[in-house]
Amino acid sequence: MNRKTKARIMDASAIDRVITRIAHEVLEKNRQTKDLCVVGIRKGGACLAERLAKKISEIDGGEIPLGILDITLYRDDLTAIAEQPVVHKTEIGFDIRDKKVILVDDVLFTGRTIRCALDQLIDFGRPKNIQLAILIDRGHRELPIRADYVGKNVPTSVVETIEVRLKELDEVDEVIIMEGEK
């Protein structure tokens, strides 16, 4: 591994402010929490989804159903990657039919993860609509996908990577730009 930290672009309070803002934007756009649900993509997106759902219900009062997607089984590169990925559970304990789904992930990059998540969500039922909320949009899309809610736009080069560290997984809340090959 030959990577080094290039810059720390967000800290805990910045992440919290972004989630608060996105929560307000979600409510502004959807007016009420009825029919609203939040689904996060493992792993980073799942933690952010939980925070977002909590924030929305703090502002509006209503309970927001929360789901977790594991997209491994829908990947388009399963035969190309050398190592077997570990499959985790998908947990969507409610019917998404006719629901407005806020899909949450930490970083939007090529768009392929979101493609997997969209396919998988639609296999669970026909939602009324799906809106995409992203903490960091780093560009370099390979599919025609865009986010409805963006925490921060971070133009990057391909050799850079974005690392989102979250308390639930890494004991600290921060976003780092790393440089060099993985």
């Binding site: 089984l73 829908y74 947990e91 669970f124 039922g125």
Partner: peptide, 19 residues
């Protein structure tokens, strides 16, 4: 452990993944 993740698929309305 892997099987545990797969168990839920058979309870879905569309019991199929494209893997």
């Amino acid at each position: 452990d892997t099987a545990e993740s797969f168990k839920e698929i058979s309870t879905r309305e569309i019991k199929k993944v494209p893997t």
